[in-house]
Nucleic acid binder design. Sequence first.
DNA 1: CGCCCAGTTGAGGACACTCAATAGCGGTGG
DNA 2: CCACCGCTATTGAGTGTCCTCAACTGGGCG
Lengths: 236, 236
Amino acid sequence: MKTVPIRVAWLGERDCRDCAIRSSALFAGLQEVDFGELHQPIEDIVLDSSAVLYRMGERGRAVFTLRRGLVKLVKYLPDGTQRIVRLLHHSDTLGLEALLGQPYPHDAIALTRCEICTIPVSLVERLGHEQSHLCQELMTRWQRALAEADRWLAEFSTGTARQRVARLLLWLTEAAPGESVPLFGREDLGAMLGLTTETVSRTIAELRRTRLIQETSHHQLALDQPGLRRIAEGMA
Amino acid sequence: MKTVPIRVAWLGERDCRDCAIRSSALFAGLQEVDFGELHQPIEDIVLDSSAVLYRMGERGRAVFTLRRGLVKLVKYLPDGTQRIVRLLHHSDTLGLEALLGQPYPHDAIALTRCEICTIPVSLVERLGHEQSHLCQELMTRWQRALAEADRWLAEFSTGTARQRVARLLLWLTEAAPGESVPLFGREDLGAMLGLTTETVSRTIAELRRTRLIQETSHHQLALDQPGLRRIAEGMA
DNA sequence: CGCCCAGTTGAGGACACTCAATAGCGGTGG
DNA sequence: CCACCGCTATTGAGTGTCCTCAACTGGGCG
């Protein structure tokens, strides 16, 4: 269990009006006029892979919108082993617990280089009083998180190692359509799937031998999606 | 895959003012005056064990507060096997997805006899416009659900069969402190823990032999909590 | 009374885990 | 520039757990 120092590059502040993911961002429903209120404190940061966004137990003063990259949420069992309970990607929201004044319930750690919007809780609260639409938007975030959690449980903790790995790879293509799939460290994959690093390694090696996955460049994969889908569903 | 007919006993309508779990219920924060608005449409129903509250895919027009009993949320994998993704108990909220106009994402099925408040979505929406406090309350519900989901993943899908069963039994005592623990069918237990019915059966039998659990009456257990805790943490 | 379903138990095998040794890769320093 | 170190990934052998298939038991209910 090692700690990675936070390395943050400040991109400077920007206006949400110009944000590339505005349509899927937290303030999507607000009318133009509202943006006047919030152009100051929102900050846009970049995290390197394996940098820590926040730690479990920290009292949060911000929620985050993930603009680019992948973030893992990590829980630790009593015996010290870690379990990755969810993966967040483009346009997902992190740290909603802060809105309720609660400490963050996981470690949030970047799996790839990430761009992240930092939104102070105070700002959301201020807007929340006037904008009942924001409430709807927030609930949608919660709901999405919950749906992902359920799916995670159903797909990535059930079935053989081959099935789990196949499902995870397919999930990763869905998460970033068109882009090539990043291949994570075996330890992370194991923690996501409830498997040991050795088992994951063997499984990946076998998928490679049978040409269902191919490494196009450094830690980037091309998938045989139909083939993997057959495996994921247990038809192989 | 069999279907169980809904058996519903209508208790008649009642005023939330008198509700026994009002302090933990959805409208906890509303001032007295607000109750005038909502004494009509909230209904209080009773479900027998294994009755269906709602089915996955149904377009929901109500959210539910569980006043008494246990409810399972069931998802079905592509191959038809079922997985119980969460258990709900006293004062939990179900079907929040209906507030977003979405279909329910699971089957909700009573595991014990249940008392459940049915709250029309229209009512929540109506109140939501005036009461920003309600928004906070709703988010708290979402958050609790998510925390449970994460815990579920970490505790009940990891470790040996003995550990999982022990953790689930301990969870059940937490969920209803003081009361005796209900022992579910082996099939349900398996679906909760990602194990087969046979494995669960063997494990339960072994726990019984080693006196860590004892059947006090029909499907009711007394637990050796310290002993089970040792197993749950892997110290046995 | 006998059926039916749920639970139990057994035998055998498959799969994933453990422990351990090796191979590859990147970075550092001589 | 190359040798060395450390870390990650890979591979192997052996073991243990859980799954599968199957037979049997017992209680509840028609």
